[in-house]
Amino acid sequence: MEIIELILPSLIVGLMLAAICGPLGSFVVWGRMSYFGDTLAHSALLGMTLGVIFQIHPVIGVLAITIAVALVLSVSQQQRKLANDAMLGIIAHGTLAAGLVIASQLDTVRIDLMAFLFGDLLSVNYQDVLWVAAICIILGIALKLLWNNLLSTLVSSEIAQAEGIPIHKIRLALLIMLALLVAIGMKVVGALLITAMMIIPAASARRLAQTPEQMALMASIIGVLAVIAGLLSSFIWDTPTGPSIVLCACLLFTATHLKQST
């Protein structure tokens, strides 16, 4: 029973993240935006250091930076002066470098780079649970309200626009939702692996679904399974939690693809 009490906050946070990653990760896969998720994650270090400097909660620092990056990318997407992936690369590595430089200058506080890169799910407390729950609820409501418009814009921005959907606002809304997701996902699997949590369950769900909604739901279920299996294995074999979860997701991906090819 003690073990359950010990891992309960981690489990709750992990499950909430996996559930919301299902639909949002599906959009990342459909829209070929995985590099966008990486860029947000890279910029998160800058947010963490800023959080330390201004003595605010790191989640707020990360949120501020990832949302700023989402806004910049949204503007640059509309201007189309530079190829999207070049722009993403510049922002990803520029903000990462800035974060590393600033972090090195902080004498008083050491930022735990390992936790930043790979997450530290087992160290979450109930305050983190509240943060993640609040953001997950916001994301859930936004997804419910915008679902049809998001899907229409994704399928054909031309038809969507002709039908009166404000496609630029809808795209921006998706980017900001992903920024929120990255901010909470950092804690669970870390900057290097957050994109994995978005795309692997969604990609695994592809072959099990006939409609977008089925795929989003299946992705959530697969993500939840991966979190449970990852946490368990992390306890049993004392492996790092974030990577264990991602590894379990990869195994599930392989399983769903093997099932189809036989």
């Binding site: 896969v29 459909w30 829209g31 994704l154 054909s156 990609a203 006939q210 409609t211 977008p212």
Partner: peptide, 9 residues
């Protein structure tokens, strides 16, 4: 209209 294969539709 191009729809990515990853979208079941």
């Amino acid at each position: 209209l191009h729809i990515d294969n990853s979208l079941p539709l």
